[in-house]
Design a protein around this nucleic acid. Structure first.
Lengths: 169, 169
DNA sequence: AAAGATTGTTGTTGACGACAACAATTGCTG
DNA sequence: CAGCAATTGTTGTCGTCAACAACAATCTTT
C-alpha cells in the first residue's frame, strides 16, 4: 500500500546517543514517516498539549500548582461564591473529581468552602486571604509559562491559535 | 482583588434543563468569567484536545479503534519492520506501554511481531493482511473525523493550526 | 406529603504516563 | 577476547485522571 520499502530493520539506529536525539524531538529526521498522521489535527494537538502541560508544570513547580488547580483557583478568584457544580461545569471537570481538588486546595489553606445559607446542599467557594496572594504569584508564573509558548511557536502564531480555539474556552 | 461582586450564589441556575446547556458548550454565556484563563493557550488547547479526542473515538467507535491504536498502526503500516523501540520513540509512547498496545492489536490479528534475525532482542513489526485492509477502513473513518474538525473550526483555521503545530508532529 | 431532581461525597473501574526491575542479547573497551 | 555497559522487550507498581455508579442530605415540583 504505502510506498515505503519493507526494510527488515536496523535496530541500532545512528550510534551511541540515539536515545537523546530520539527523545528530544519527535519529528526528528529519523527517517520514520508518519503517513496519514500528518494532516490529522488531533495528533498534532495531542503532542502540543503534552509539551505545553509539561512546561506549565515545570514553570510552576516551585509553587506546586498544576494546570487544573490553577484553573480552579482562577475561576474561584474571578467569581467568588460559586458552587462546586458551577465550577465543575464551567471548567469541564466532573464534580466527583473537583471534590478531591478542593480537598487539596483547602488543605493548603488556599480555598475555603462556606456552607450556603440559601441552599444547604451546596458550598460557596472562596479564596482565602493567603489564596489571593498566592494566586497572584501563580499568575505571574503562568505568564512566564505563556512566554515559553510564545518562544516555541511564535507570538502571532500563539495569538492565532488562541483565536482559532476561542470557542473552546 | 477581582472586580466581580461576591454574590453568595444562586445554585439553581436557569431552571430545568441547565444540565444540558452547561454540559453542551463550556463557553456558554453562564456569566462565569474565566479571568486569566482566557489568554492561556494551554487551557484552550486542553479543551480542544478533549473535544477532538471524543469525536475521534465516536467516529471510529464502530471499528473500536482509539487514537493511540490508530497512530501505532499507521506508523507500522508506513514503515514495516520497525522495532518496538523505534515506534515508541517516534510516537512518544513509552515502550512499556506499547507492549500492551501491541498485545491488543496482535490479539485482534491486525499486527504481528516477527523475531528479528539481525538482533535477537528485537521484534520487527508488520501489519497482517487483515491489518492492511482494516487500516484502510480506519483511515477513511479518520478522514471523516477530520471533516468534523473542519466543520467545527473552519477549513482554513484547521490548516493554519496544522501549520502552527507542525513542529510537534 | 410524595416523587423526583440536585449537590456533594465516596468508591470503582479503566486508560495513561513515569519509573523501576529484570532476562536476554548486543556493543564497547580495555 | 573477556567482562562490563547498554539496549530491547517485558512485567509490575505508583500516581493521575476521566467516566460511572451509588448514596445521604436537601431542594423542587406536583
Amino acid at each position: 500500500m504505502t510506498e515505503s520499502a519493507s526494510r527488515t530493520e536496523t535496530p541500532k539506529a545512528a550510534s551511541g546517543k540515539r536515545t537523546d536525539r530520539a527523545r528530544a524531538r519527535p519529528n526528528d529526521a529519523d527517517g520514520i514517516g508518519l503517513d496519514a498522521l500528518v494532516g490529522h489535527a488531533g495528533y498534532a494537538v495531542r503532542r502540543f498539549q503534552i509539551w505545553i502541560f509539561q512546561d506549565f508544570v515545570r514553570t510552576l513547580a516551585a509553587v506546586d500548582i498544576k494546570p487544573t488547580q490553577y484553573s480552579v483557583m482562577t475561576v474561584i478568584g474571578a467569581n467568588p461564591g460559586l458552587t462546586q457544580m458551577a465550577v465543575a461545569n464551567r471548567l469541564g471537570i466532573e464534580r466527583a473529581r473537583l471534590v478531591h481538588l478542593l480537598d487539596s486546595l483547602e488543605g493548603r489553606k488556599l480555598v475555603k468552602r462556606i456552607k450556603s445559607k440559601s441552599d444547604r446542599r451546596s458550598h460557596a467557594l472562596h479564596l482565602t486571604a493567603q489564596g489571593e496572594t498566592s494566586l497572584a504569584k501563580f499568575k505571574r508564573l503562568a505568564t512566564e509559562h505563556e512566554r515559553h509558548v510564545e518562544e516555541k511557536i511564535g507570538r502571532e502564531n500563539r495569538e492565532k491559535l488562541l483565536q482559532i480555539l476561542s470557542d473552546f474556552t
